[in-house]
Amino acid sequence: MDRRELADFLRSRRERITPADVGLPAGPRRRTPGLRREEAARLAFISTEYWTRLEQARAPRPSREVLAGLARALRLSDAERDHLHHLAGAPPGPSRGPSREVRQSLADLLDRLPMAAAFVLSAAYEVIAWNALAAALMEDFSALPRRDRNLVRRTFLGPHPEGRRLYGLSDADEFARHAAQQLRAAAARYPDDPEVAALVAELLAGSEEFAELWASHDVSDEPRLCKTLHHPLVGPVTVDCDVLDVADRDQRVVIYTAVPGSSSEEALRLLSVVGTQRMDVPG
């Protein structure tokens, strides 16, 4: 553990973050750049005394839990997080499970696409970020418990009699096959992740179709680049589907857009105004 380098690194990262970055008021008497020690400590869920000792190179080696809190509080990049671990004498190990942390730049990107329904999928097909139009077109994910945001689970074990036809997808069978293949590949990348193992076990026990697809051992398939979703308010919406890989997080950004001037573009425009409110039932 390099206490002096760790101390200098923590101080430099703390001083670059403004209170506004983390939703704190600046206040009229702020004399130091960036966050105060007590503010950073509160964000990291450690005591101000311990943070002070870290910056004074007097603290014992922080645990991995503390390192995770420091990285979160200081909004470290992946490279900075690895550097923090090395300075603390605890080199980062391989990722145990799929990352669910979405970079702020990606979250901002979703909101900058007002006429595209965009969302982020983890390696296990969990929807972990979305914009307003994706919620209006597909589902209000914020109203769902986390387990119900997994598209593989909803595809094969959906709550409705025709739950397999996820969001009225016209290519439901193709999507199911592709999702099963992607999940098999993810299970191989994260063999020690209990959530992925539990998801696979649940699907094998609850869906004969998934069990058959799983038994095929197929792991690669090209998704369809054009889809039609049947929305209860605006009817069929045909969209182009583009998928951007986020390699460092093992995530995918899915973007649905309609052909300019088409009826589907008008449907998306209406949904961008209506949002997630229900117009097809009495108030």
Rank of each mutant, 00 (worst) to 15 (best):
R4N: 13
R16N: 01
I17L: 15
A20H: 12
P25F: 01
G27W: 12
R29T: 11
T32P: 02
R37C: 04
A41L: 11
F45D: 15
S47E: 07
R58K: 14
A59P: 05
P62Q: 05
G69A: 09
G69V: 04
L70N: 06
A71D: 07
A73Y: 08
D82M: 10
D82K: 13
H83W: 08
L87Q: 13
L87S: 10
A88Y: 03
P92A: 13
S95G: 12
S95R: 14
P98Y: 00
S105L: 12
L110R: 01
D111C: 04
R112A: 15
A116H: 06
A117R: 04
V120Y: 02
L121W: 05
A124N: 11
M138V: 09
M138P: 00
E139F: 08
F141N: 02
F141Y: 11
P145H: 10
R146G: 00
R147C: 06
D148E: 15
R149E: 03
T155Y: 00
F156H: 05
P161V: 10
P161E: 07
G163A: 11
S170L: 01
F175T: 02
H178S: 09
H178R: 00
Q181V: 01
Q182A: 11
A185H: 10
A186D: 02
A187F: 10
A188H: 09
A188W: 09
P191N: 04
D193W: 01
E195M: 03
A198R: 13
E202V: 00
L204S: 14
S207N: 08
S207D: 05
F210S: 03
A215G: 15
H217Y: 00
P223F: 12
L225H: 14
T228K: 06
L229R: 10
V234Y: 01
P236R: 04
V246L: 14
E265S: 06
E265L: 04
R269E: 15
L270D: 14
Q277S: 15
R278L: 12
